[in-house]
């Protein structure tokens, strides 16, 4: 068992942080890599990015949004409980290079995934402008951490309750117009990554996105995570999860993410009904 040693709730309990004992993984993990977790015997294998790792303590930290049955089961785990299985580190690490000025754009729980990458981008000597957004103020996560990981943090909310009133893409355009931007990293909901990539293509700024297709093994064995990049089929778990945003077929990814929507909605509702009845 992989024991949970720290647990926090964010964004009104819709986002959960777990710090988990996993010494082998903590020792090897690099920014951009993910793990697959399974809560119990009959659990689903769920991919989540490592938001932080502590090789000395032997722990990894995940931050996830509760969206369905499996993440709801994860939410119900307390400190001292654990995951039956944690597999990783999986995926290719982020390609880190000193290029100059970099924009890191995050939306929703994408911010959790973005955090270690932002810090690493800064650590290799880049000037990092970070833009993060959420629907509303209460759903904005990791503000302090992101401020520490970047040189300049800009905030946005869709409803204007905090920071810029509007989308991250609007703020990004302003920064791009200031000039000198050499690289953009965008992580968040598929429509956000698509919008960012469309804009940066006009500006001809290389853009990295982190894709989140449905996965099973995470080792290139099943092909369930396939995505189209530049007209070629790639397996996100081994060839990614980061790809050139200008080449990704986001519309296909969006459709593929909906493959089990009806089934999962039903089983999540059933789980909540049973849980609330207890």
């Amino acid at each position: 068992m992989f024991t949970i040693v720290r647990r926090e709730e964010m964004a009104q309990g819709t986002v959960i942080l777990n710090e988990i004992e996993a010494p082998l993984i903590a020792r090897k993990a690099k920014p951009g890599q993910f793990v697959i977790l399974k809560a119990g015997e009959d659990g689903e294998r769920i991919p989540l990015t490592m938001a932080e790792t502590d090789p000395d303590k032997g722990t990894i930290t995940i931050i996830y949004m509760v969206v369905g049955k499996s993440t709801a089961i994860f939410r119900d785990l307390a400190v001292g409980d654990g995951y039956q299985d944690v597999i990783g580190p999986l995926g290719k690490p982020t390609h880190l290079e000193k290029v100059g000025k970099v924009i890191c754009v995050g939306g929703g729980t994408g911010v959790a995934v973005l955090h270690p990458i932002t810090r690493a981008m800064k650590d290799v000597g880049n000037e990092v402008v970070c833009i993060i957004g959420a629907r509303t103020k209460d759903l904005l996560i990791l503000e302090d951490q992101m401020r520490g990981a970047s040189h300049d943090l800009r905030l946005c909310t869709d409803d204007g309750s905090y920071g810029h009133h509007g989308f991250v893409t609007e703020v990004m355009k302003e920064v791009l117009d200031e000039g000198g931007v050499k690289q953009v990293v965008a992580i968040g909901p598929v429509p956000m990554m698509k919008a960012v990539s469309t804009i940066t293509k006009e500006y001809q700024v290389p853009t990295l996105v982190s894709l989140n297709p449905i996965m099973v093994d995470g080792t290139g064995m099943c092909g369930g995570c396939r995505v189209s990049v530049g007209g070629e089929t790639k397996f996100a778990c081994v060839d990614g999860p980061e790809f050139d945003g200008h080449q990704v077929d986001f519309d296909e990814l969006n459709l593929r993410l909906r493959a089990y929507l009806a089934d999962e909605k039903k089983c999540h509702e059933d789980y909540c009904t049973i849980r609330d009845a207890r």
Binding site: D42, S70, C267
Partner: peptide, 12 residues
């Protein structure tokens, strides 16, 4: 993943 027992198991 024993998905043939879905929804008793979590994998569809």
């Amino acid at each position: 993943m024993k998905a043939y027992k879905f929804p008793d198991v979590d994998t569809p």
